[in-house]
Design a binder for these strands. Structure first.
Lengths: 231, 231
DNA sequence: CGCGAAATTGAAGACACTCAAAGAGTGTGG
DNA sequence: CCACACTCTTTGAGTGTCTTCAATTTCGCG
């Protein structure tokens, strides 16, 4: 299920966890500023990380896929909110158990390190997208990234169509745009025969043109997949 | 010098490194897409991480302070560029040594994990700033963050004035704005008696008003400092 | 003193936002 | 199975923040 946790690693972690938790789609795992004593290791499902801004705006920080580590923060307050996009399962590891876990199983430590630094690289990628790219590129990138990452996670599904439980408002919140403007851009992409995004269903009609509109290079796509490259 | 690396940890890492490297202010450690075989552990100085966008734009991803881990990427290509803002020293750890290092010294693994996840949280913070805040708040936040982080790193300096080797263009590249617009906003902040930023020197005239303009809460500031909160 | 880089200022324009209303799709309960 | 309620999408018109382009001034440094 989770690429980052081979079965063996899973069972090792299991002996340090305080328990599992299942969350229904749409429910919150935790909210910003809420007390959060345990690290949440996502085992199954999609989870949305977000930050709320005082004027009512919301910024989506990441879409966490299985293997992600949520709730890492100094102090015991969550710095951001987390809510399940699909039904999800997390494995809870109390903060104070993390030290012993890594002490006894350094290999796990290395894996966690790689997971988090991949998350950091992804965040960097989003930063330059939101900070320096026009709306069309941001949206094309965001959708392409979601597509690539989910295909990598669940290679079974093989079509160019996928279920994406997001509204256009969500896409706006991830790209730093308004839902209304996202709608206009999507309209353009559809008119150009590049993709369709209708009621939680994304269909890529012309992958080449989408890559072109997103202005991503092969290297970046590889980074999205999370694969370590060959030597 | 580096808060994250107690002397003991330093000496352990030393036995796994391939060497040190000193970089003069303004010089590049590595450029985007350049081959990069070793992890760069920053020991001393400020390093700027950036990404270049095809239209000529640049996005600053982070200002790395001592303790930061640079050059972590899948494959052996750098996903971003790194350039020294001040004279700097890095300790180079070949990628293939990382496994053995953590294997034999799990405590180091835990520290590295905490370092990277703090960097990730900082990137998330920047995301919501750039994605959802107006120019004035972004700039106020950016300057306040730099101030807080550098004060935490070098507590010796105690005044409300600091040396910041940046141009207004740099501030634009970190906040996703143009240098010209940064200038106008800084003009406003100066007119209000909040701060002065003139030729590589930042002086905070009214800390309370700056915090107000930046719209940061205490919790976020604590996260910037990198301190783990008490239980 | 003069050169180059950075800062400053103005004017015009563009991209994205706000406000608002209508249309389409989904789900639920009778 | 239909009707209603709700959410999400779609479209228009007007506005505003930030950008672009360009000229001028200030500053640091040789």
């Amino acid at each position: 299920m989770c690429r980052d946790c081979a079965p063996k690693a899973q069972s090792i972690i299991a002996s340090y966890k305080s328990g599992d938790r299942t969350i229904k789609a749409g429910q919150a795992l935790f909210r910003p500023t809420e007390r959060c004593d345990a690290i949440h290791h996502l085992v199954e499902g999609w989870v949305l990380l977000y930050d709320l801004v005082d004027d009512g705006g919301r910024q989506i920080l990441n879409f966490a896929l299985p293997g992600a580590l949520l709730g890492l923060s100094p102090g015991r307050m969550a710095l951001y909110g987390a809510e399940a996009l699909t039904d999800a399962t997390v494995c809870l590891i109390p903060h104070e158990r993390l030290g012993p876990l890594i002490e006894h199983h350094p290999g796990i430590g290395l894996r966690l390190l790689q997971t988090v630094w991949r998350e950091r690289n992804l965040a960097y990628d989003h930063l330059s997208s939101i900070g320096r790219r026009p709306a069309r590129q941001r949206i094309a990138r965001a959708l392409l990234e979601l597509f690539v990452r989910s295909r990598m996670q669940w290679p079974a599904h093989r079509s160019e169509e996928m279920h994406l439980p997001l509204t256009q408002e969500h896409i706006g919140d991830m790209t730093g745009l308004t839902g209304v403007h996202v709608n206009r851009i999507l309209h353009g992409l559809r008119a150009e025969g590049i993709l369709e995004f209708h009621y939680r269903r994304l269909r890529i009609l012309n992958p080449d043109k989408l890559v072109d509109a997103a202005r991503v290079d092969a290297q970046t796509v590889v980074a999205w997949t999370g694969r370590s490259a060959p030597d």
